[in-house]
Amino acid sequence: MEIVISLNQITKQFKKQTAVNNISTVIHKGELVAILGPNGAGKSTTLLMMLGLIEPTNGEITLMGDHPKHKRNRERIGAMLQEVSMIDALTVMEVIQLFRSYYPQPMAFEQLISITGLQEEDLKKRADKLSGGQKRRLSFALALAGDPEIIFFDEPTVGMDTSARRNFWRTVEEMNKKGKTVIFTTHYLQEADDVAKRIILFNQGKIIADGAPIDIKRKLTASSVSFAANDFISLEMLATIAYVMKVVEKDGRVFLETDHTDEVLEEIFARKIKVKDINIHHGRLDEAFEQLTRRGGEFVESSLDAV
């Protein structure tokens, strides 16, 4: 498969802070990639570097073989960014026609209109007077105005209601089926899991996992066995049980992280350890992801090493 984006040892420093720390990856034509991670993980910075809007401090990025800023690239990409408000004083129709005029082979006007989902009377409204959700849909149409080969979305569904979200992703999947490469950032694991064919997981400026959603999920969702803590049980001893990856004491309970809960329970009973109030947790995705966010990667590092 043809490589459309390549990042080679990219680092981006803002003053003293390292936003992106020495990452390398490639994206192929036709992929549907989610860049997933908690806030401040370096997702948007990476996306903006792919678009050539900010320059990396170190390393090299190519977009379809050229520097991202190359004019040929501008004609073949489309993007929806965060915190871009609509141009003032132009109507929806005027903005769409203006954007179509920039590109050699624009998408049909009617098709863009249907993507915005706006009613006939709304098309004559000033673009900056639309509601928040309508503006997002117009931004989506503007991103597609040039019928791009690669589409970038930075946190696209923030501010969309459920039905708008569904419509948005349906259109994105259709675009992807037609061979367009789609790259989006999100901090919703569920969204990445539902839509993307590949997840690049970011934390603290690094890529900590990269693969199909199912593999990422497995890495993120270790299960655990927990019981009420008491003075007779030593945590060191528990750590020697086979399959236990980590022992944590929290809120008066002891948690044994493992991906083989049955075997761990068997061993506890075999050793006749006196435990009370046993619980088995199968890590739910959101929970696991939240854990990742809170602990700043500690959890993932331990469970990823074990996989």
Binding site: A79, V84, S85, Y102
Partner: peptide, 10 residues
């Protein structure tokens, strides 16, 4: 953010 957005167009 409009100027930045314009830089993405041809």
């Amino acid at each position: 953010g409009w100027s930045m957005f314009m830089r993405l167009t041809p």
